[in-house]
Design a protein around this nucleic acid. Structure first.
Length: 264
DNA sequence: CCTATAGCCTGACGGC
DNA sequence: TGCCGTCAGGCTATAG
Protein backbone atom coordinates (compact mmCIF):
# COMPACT_ATOMS: atom_id res chain seq x y z
CA UNK A 1 0.00 0.00 0.00
CA UNK A 2 2.34 2.70 1.11
CA UNK A 3 3.75 4.65 -1.82
CA UNK A 4 3.36 8.37 -2.48
CA UNK A 5 -0.40 8.30 -3.22
CA UNK A 6 -1.12 6.15 -0.17
CA UNK A 7 0.95 8.47 1.98
CA UNK A 8 -0.91 11.51 0.62
CA UNK A 9 -4.20 9.85 1.54
CA UNK A 10 -2.88 9.08 5.03
CA UNK A 11 -1.75 12.67 5.41
CA UNK A 12 -5.24 13.93 4.54
CA UNK A 13 -6.67 11.41 6.94
CA UNK A 14 -4.47 12.65 9.77
CA UNK A 15 -5.17 16.28 8.85
CA UNK A 16 -8.88 15.68 9.27
CA UNK A 17 -8.74 13.51 12.36
CA UNK A 18 -5.77 13.58 14.67
CA UNK A 19 -4.55 17.20 14.74
CA UNK A 20 -4.55 19.46 17.80
CA UNK A 21 -5.64 16.76 20.25
CA UNK A 22 -3.61 16.30 23.37
CA UNK A 23 -1.93 12.93 23.62
CA UNK A 24 -2.77 11.15 26.79
CA UNK A 25 -0.89 7.89 26.39
CA UNK A 26 1.19 5.91 23.91
CA UNK A 27 1.18 2.11 23.83
CA UNK A 28 3.75 0.17 21.85
CA UNK A 29 2.85 -3.46 21.15
CA UNK A 30 6.20 -4.31 19.58
CA UNK A 31 9.17 -2.01 19.86
CA UNK A 32 10.82 -3.60 16.86
CA UNK A 33 9.39 -0.78 14.75
CA UNK A 34 11.00 1.90 16.88
CA UNK A 35 14.19 3.30 15.37
CA UNK A 36 16.73 5.07 17.55
CA UNK A 37 14.22 5.51 20.34
CA UNK A 38 12.84 3.38 23.15
CA UNK A 39 9.22 2.90 24.11
CA UNK A 40 9.66 5.05 27.19
CA UNK A 41 11.54 7.62 25.15
CA UNK A 42 8.68 7.81 22.68
CA UNK A 43 6.18 8.25 25.50
CA UNK A 44 8.24 11.02 27.04
CA UNK A 45 8.40 12.87 23.75
CA UNK A 46 4.70 12.55 22.93
CA UNK A 47 2.56 12.50 26.05
CA UNK A 48 1.18 15.96 26.76
CA UNK A 49 1.89 17.13 23.19
CA UNK A 50 -0.40 17.22 20.18
CA UNK A 51 0.08 16.70 16.45
CA UNK A 52 0.24 20.12 14.84
CA UNK A 53 0.91 19.58 11.16
CA UNK A 54 1.82 16.82 8.75
CA UNK A 55 4.37 16.86 5.97
CA UNK A 56 4.93 14.03 3.53
CA UNK A 57 8.31 13.43 1.93
CA UNK A 58 8.75 10.36 -0.24
CA UNK A 59 7.28 7.49 1.71
CA UNK A 60 7.62 9.21 5.08
CA UNK A 61 5.22 11.30 7.11
CA UNK A 62 6.65 13.95 9.42
CA UNK A 63 4.25 14.88 12.17
CA UNK A 64 5.19 18.09 13.94
CA UNK A 65 4.60 18.07 17.66
CA UNK A 66 3.21 21.05 19.52
CA UNK A 67 6.30 21.10 21.70
CA UNK A 68 9.68 20.13 20.34
CA UNK A 69 10.42 17.47 17.78
CA UNK A 70 8.81 15.72 14.85
CA UNK A 71 7.32 12.23 14.84
CA UNK A 72 8.51 10.23 11.84
CA UNK A 73 6.24 7.52 10.42
CA UNK A 74 7.23 4.99 7.78
CA UNK A 75 4.88 2.22 6.75
CA UNK A 76 7.01 -0.52 5.29
CA UNK A 77 5.00 -2.73 2.99
CA UNK A 78 1.82 -3.11 4.94
CA UNK A 79 1.35 -0.21 7.32
CA UNK A 80 -1.70 1.93 7.87
CA UNK A 81 -3.47 4.35 10.23
CA UNK A 82 -6.84 4.15 11.87
CA UNK A 83 -8.53 6.78 14.02
CA UNK A 84 -11.17 5.23 16.23
CA UNK A 85 -12.83 5.55 19.59
CA UNK A 86 -14.43 2.33 20.72
CA UNK A 87 -12.22 -0.47 21.98
CA UNK A 88 -14.13 -2.97 19.86
CA UNK A 89 -13.14 -0.95 16.79
CA UNK A 90 -9.48 -1.50 17.43
CA UNK A 91 -7.99 -2.57 14.10
CA UNK A 92 -5.94 -5.72 13.66
CA UNK A 93 -2.18 -5.48 13.91
CA UNK A 94 -2.15 -2.29 15.96
CA UNK A 95 1.54 -1.87 16.77
CA UNK A 96 1.36 1.59 18.26
CA UNK A 97 -1.60 3.30 19.83
CA UNK A 98 -1.68 7.04 20.33
CA UNK A 99 -4.47 7.74 22.78
CA UNK A 100 -5.88 11.27 22.92
CA UNK A 101 -7.52 13.06 25.78
CA UNK A 102 -10.77 13.24 23.84
CA UNK A 103 -11.10 9.46 24.07
CA UNK A 104 -10.11 8.72 20.49
CA UNK A 105 -7.06 6.72 19.47
CA UNK A 106 -4.83 6.66 16.45
CA UNK A 107 -3.60 3.19 15.54
CA UNK A 108 -0.40 2.64 13.61
CA UNK A 109 -1.05 -0.79 12.14
CA UNK A 110 1.30 -3.18 10.41
CA UNK A 111 0.91 -6.95 9.90
CA UNK A 112 4.50 -7.26 8.77
CA UNK A 113 6.74 -5.33 11.05
CA UNK A 114 8.85 -3.68 8.40
CA UNK A 115 8.04 -0.05 9.09
CA UNK A 116 9.88 2.41 11.29
CA UNK A 117 8.85 5.07 13.77
CA UNK A 118 11.08 7.60 15.42
CA UNK A 119 11.30 11.20 16.59
CA UNK A 120 13.64 13.68 14.98
CA UNK A 121 14.53 17.26 15.70
CA UNK A 122 15.11 18.09 12.06
CA UNK A 123 13.25 16.38 9.19
CA UNK A 124 15.61 17.78 6.56
CA UNK A 125 18.55 16.29 8.36
CA UNK A 126 16.65 13.00 8.63
CA UNK A 127 16.01 13.08 4.86
CA UNK A 128 19.71 13.65 4.27
CA UNK A 129 20.69 10.84 6.56
CA UNK A 130 18.35 8.47 4.73
CA UNK A 131 19.85 9.66 1.46
CA UNK A 132 16.48 10.41 -0.09
CA UNK A 133 16.39 12.04 -3.50
CA UNK A 134 14.01 14.90 -4.33
CA UNK A 135 10.34 14.18 -3.71
CA UNK A 136 8.63 13.71 -7.06
CA UNK A 137 5.83 16.05 -5.96
CA UNK A 138 8.14 18.84 -4.85
CA UNK A 139 7.24 22.22 -6.37
CA UNK A 140 10.56 22.40 -8.17
CA UNK A 141 10.52 18.82 -9.43
CA UNK A 142 9.86 19.42 -13.12
CA UNK A 143 10.72 17.84 -16.45
CA UNK A 144 14.22 19.30 -16.30
CA UNK A 145 14.77 17.79 -12.87
CA UNK A 146 13.57 14.43 -14.12
CA UNK A 147 15.82 14.58 -17.18
CA UNK A 148 18.85 15.52 -15.12
CA UNK A 149 18.29 12.67 -12.69
CA UNK A 150 18.07 10.10 -15.49
CA UNK A 151 20.93 11.60 -17.46
CA UNK A 152 23.94 9.29 -17.27
CA UNK A 153 22.05 6.72 -15.24
CA UNK A 154 22.87 3.16 -16.19
CA UNK A 155 20.49 0.25 -15.80
CA UNK A 156 16.78 -0.24 -16.28
CA UNK A 157 14.00 2.31 -15.96
CA UNK A 158 11.84 0.51 -13.40
CA UNK A 159 14.50 0.30 -10.69
CA UNK A 160 15.43 3.91 -11.46
CA UNK A 161 11.87 5.11 -10.78
CA UNK A 162 11.84 3.10 -7.55
CA UNK A 163 15.25 4.24 -6.32
CA UNK A 164 14.46 6.44 -3.33
CA UNK A 165 17.91 7.97 -3.37
CA UNK A 166 17.36 9.10 -6.97
CA UNK A 167 13.78 10.33 -6.52
CA UNK A 168 11.50 9.72 -3.56
CA UNK A 169 7.94 8.48 -3.52
CA UNK A 170 7.46 5.79 -6.16
CA UNK A 171 7.39 2.08 -5.31
CA UNK A 172 6.75 -1.17 -7.08
CA UNK A 173 3.07 -0.77 -7.86
CA UNK A 174 3.11 2.77 -9.17
CA UNK A 175 6.30 2.29 -11.16
CA UNK A 176 4.44 -0.43 -13.05
CA UNK A 177 1.40 1.78 -13.59
CA UNK A 178 3.52 4.69 -14.81
CA UNK A 179 5.43 2.50 -17.26
CA UNK A 180 2.20 0.94 -18.47
CA UNK A 181 0.60 4.33 -19.12
CA UNK A 182 3.76 5.53 -20.87
CA UNK A 183 4.03 2.27 -22.83
CA UNK A 184 7.60 1.73 -21.74
CA UNK A 185 8.92 -1.74 -20.97
CA UNK A 186 10.05 -2.06 -17.31
CA UNK A 187 13.43 -3.41 -18.44
CA UNK A 188 14.08 -0.58 -20.88
CA UNK A 189 17.58 0.82 -20.40
CA UNK A 190 17.46 4.41 -19.17
CA UNK A 191 20.19 5.38 -21.60
CA UNK A 192 18.10 4.22 -24.53
CA UNK A 193 15.12 6.42 -23.71
CA UNK A 194 14.45 9.16 -26.27
CA UNK A 195 13.91 12.70 -24.97
CA UNK A 196 10.25 12.68 -25.97
CA UNK A 197 9.78 9.34 -24.22
CA UNK A 198 11.30 10.81 -21.06
CA UNK A 199 8.89 13.72 -21.30
CA UNK A 200 6.00 11.32 -21.78
CA UNK A 201 7.17 9.29 -18.78
CA UNK A 202 7.31 12.41 -16.67
CA UNK A 203 3.80 13.41 -17.66
CA UNK A 204 2.49 9.90 -17.02
CA UNK A 205 4.18 9.89 -13.64
CA UNK A 206 2.39 13.10 -12.64
CA UNK A 207 -0.91 11.90 -14.07
CA UNK A 208 -0.79 8.47 -12.48
CA UNK A 209 0.11 9.77 -9.02
CA UNK A 210 -2.58 12.46 -9.11
CA UNK A 211 -5.14 10.01 -10.45
CA UNK A 212 -4.37 7.60 -7.61
CA UNK A 213 -4.76 10.30 -4.98
CA UNK A 214 -8.08 11.40 -6.47
CA UNK A 215 -9.20 7.81 -6.07
CA UNK A 216 -7.99 7.59 -2.46
CA UNK A 217 -5.22 5.24 -3.59
CA UNK A 218 -7.85 2.53 -3.88
CA UNK A 219 -7.14 0.52 -7.04
CA UNK A 220 -10.66 -0.89 -7.09
CA UNK A 221 -11.93 2.54 -7.98
CA UNK A 222 -9.29 3.35 -10.58
CA UNK A 223 -10.38 4.07 -14.17
CA UNK A 224 -10.77 1.13 -16.51
CA UNK A 225 -7.59 1.88 -18.44
CA UNK A 226 -5.31 1.21 -15.47
CA UNK A 227 -3.11 -1.77 -14.78
CA UNK A 228 -2.96 -1.68 -10.99
CA UNK A 229 -6.32 -3.38 -10.32
CA UNK A 230 -5.03 -6.35 -12.33
CA UNK A 231 -2.04 -7.03 -10.11
CA UNK A 232 -2.04 -10.64 -9.08
CA UNK A 233 -4.02 -11.63 -12.14
CA UNK A 234 -1.38 -12.72 -14.55
CA UNK A 235 -2.95 -13.56 -17.89
CA UNK A 236 -5.69 -10.94 -17.52
CA UNK A 237 -6.67 -8.99 -20.61
CA UNK A 238 -4.82 -5.72 -21.14
CA UNK A 239 -7.49 -3.01 -20.84
CA UNK A 240 -5.90 -1.16 -23.74
CA UNK A 241 -5.02 -3.68 -26.41
CA UNK A 242 -6.49 -6.98 -25.28
CA UNK A 243 -3.02 -8.48 -24.91
CA UNK A 244 -2.14 -10.61 -21.92
CA UNK A 245 -0.82 -9.03 -18.75
CA UNK A 246 2.36 -10.72 -17.65
CA UNK A 247 4.43 -10.80 -14.48
CA UNK A 248 8.20 -10.85 -14.65
CA UNK A 249 11.03 -10.25 -12.22
CA UNK A 250 12.79 -6.95 -12.66
CA UNK A 251 15.58 -6.17 -10.28
CA UNK A 252 14.18 -8.66 -7.82
CA UNK A 253 10.65 -7.24 -7.77
CA UNK A 254 7.49 -8.53 -9.37
CA UNK A 255 6.68 -6.39 -12.38
CA UNK A 256 3.32 -6.46 -14.18
CA UNK A 257 3.12 -5.18 -17.74
CA UNK A 258 1.61 -5.79 -21.16
CA UNK A 259 4.14 -7.26 -23.59
CA UNK A 260 2.09 -6.01 -26.53
CA UNK A 261 1.76 -2.33 -25.49
CA UNK A 262 5.13 -2.13 -23.78
CA UNK A 263 7.56 -3.57 -26.26
CA UNK A 264 11.09 -4.24 -25.17
C1' DC B 1 27.51 3.50 -10.28
C1' DC B 2 24.44 -0.45 -10.83
C1' DT B 3 22.62 -5.36 -10.11
C1' DA B 4 21.68 -9.43 -7.59
C1' DT B 5 20.97 -11.58 -3.28
C1' DA B 6 19.72 -12.21 1.30
C1' DG B 7 17.64 -10.71 5.39
C1' DC B 8 14.32 -8.40 8.21
C1' DC B 9 9.01 -9.91 9.60
C1' DT B 10 4.51 -12.32 9.20
C1' DG B 11 0.05 -13.11 6.89
C1' DA B 12 -2.51 -14.88 2.87
C1' DC B 13 -3.07 -18.18 -0.53
C1' DG B 14 -2.70 -22.33 -3.45
C1' DG B 15 -1.40 -27.15 -3.85
C1' DC B 16 -0.98 -31.66 -1.96
C1' DT C 1 -7.65 -29.83 8.14
C1' DG C 2 -2.68 -29.39 8.20
C1' DC C 3 1.62 -28.58 6.26
C1' DC C 4 4.60 -26.41 2.94
C1' DG C 5 6.17 -23.35 -0.39
C1' DT C 6 5.55 -18.90 -2.51
C1' DC C 7 4.42 -14.34 -2.64
C1' DA C 8 3.75 -9.61 -0.73
C1' DG C 9 2.95 -2.37 -2.46
C1' DG C 10 9.62 -1.58 1.93
C1' DC C 11 14.53 -0.80 3.03
C1' DT C 12 19.32 -2.13 4.13
C1' DA C 13 23.70 -4.43 3.76
C1' DT C 14 26.83 -7.03 1.10
C1' DA C 15 29.33 -8.77 -2.73
C1' DG C 16 30.51 -8.52 -7.59
Amino acid sequence: MPELPDLEVMKSYLDSTALYKEIDAVEVADSIVLEDITTSGLKERLVGQSFDSIRRYGKYLFVSLSGAGVLVLHFGMTGGLQYYKIESHQPDYELIRFAFKNGYRLAYTMPRKLGHVTVTEDPDQFIQKKDLGPDVFADDFNLETFKKLLDGRRGMIKPALMDQSLMAGIGNVYSDEILYQARVHPRKEVGELQPDTIQHLFECMQDVLHMAIEHDADPETFPANTLTPLRGEEGADCPRCGGEIRRIEVSGRGAYYCPKCQEE
